[in-house]
Design a protein around this nucleic acid. Sequence first.
DNA 1: CCGAGTCGGTTGGTTTTCCCAACCCATGGC
DNA 2: GCCATGGGTTGGGAAAACCAACCGACTCGG
Lengths: 146, 146
Amino acid sequence: MTPSPATVSPRLCSVAGALDVIGEKWSLLVVRELILGVQRFNDIAAHTGAPRDILTARLRRLEDLGIVERRPYSDRPPRYEYVLTKAGRDLRPVVMALKHWGDTHVMHRQMPPVLEHHCGEVFVPRVHCAACGEPADGRTLKRIDA
Amino acid sequence: MTPSPATVSPRLCSVAGALDVIGEKWSLLVVRELILGVQRFNDIAAHTGAPRDILTARLRRLEDLGIVERRPYSDRPPRYEYVLTKAGRDLRPVVMALKHWGDTHVMHRQMPPVLEHHCGEVFVPRVHCAACGEPADGRTLKRIDA
DNA sequence: CCGAGTCGGTTGGTTTTCCCAACCCATGGC
DNA sequence: GCCATGGGTTGGGAAAACCAACCGACTCGG
């Protein structure tokens, strides 16, 4: 337990290395969103709660580190989306371990599990209209009772 | 992908909950040290590189959250050591996942794996003198060649 | 053609956090 | 007496995070 004398420097360790890379505030929440398939700047900001300027900084850094890829999905107007690289997808076990620990030691009720659809992707539910098959959301639905 | 309109608030999620608890700078490195069996304030400070005042704050918070236990091992002078609770030991998968990711994506060479001795504890090597069986370190060894 | 809305950001100013060196106190050993 | 050890605390400066407001390029509705 007692360390070697005199020249004790911080442990050279890949846990520390990993935290240097993805240990900054918001980084892992951004990765969580990307794992869930959220790809657009505004959506990531809304779902994580991260300030927009910080989010910009994190996305740039994750891009520099080869964890996310930023790619245009529209030329005019210029629009971008973010997707995980292999290195980024490999963070799933980290996020899952955090989620499991959070489930059992922080949240008092069990959170819904992350599911994987048989297509191989993380399952994100989306409501469709059974009649026409088109997606349904707040803009395509309207109250008719009043 | 596009979220529901209007009232989009940060996702209620145990990943976020976990990060609120152990996502602050240095927290997971402190847990790493405790997993490795380092229990004393000065040793944790030296091995992590955390500033002493920050380390104090983190240890207090981890104690309040029930992740570490602070207990005296000497009355006079008053001295304390830190050990993980069950909730703290349950963070091992998180630290291991981080370590594995760091091994493959940050560090360019493989770091030595964390081993578990058959006694059930994490294996931390300590060099002993084969002759007398006592532990050997910088204070008990001396160069005799010059 | 005008005004409002969308998207992906920037900018400036404030607040919070982190960092570092120095100091403190009780004790034990020389 | 004097220094070392262990577990901190303190003050002050540097860095990071936060927030509201703004911007530019476009689209859409009227």
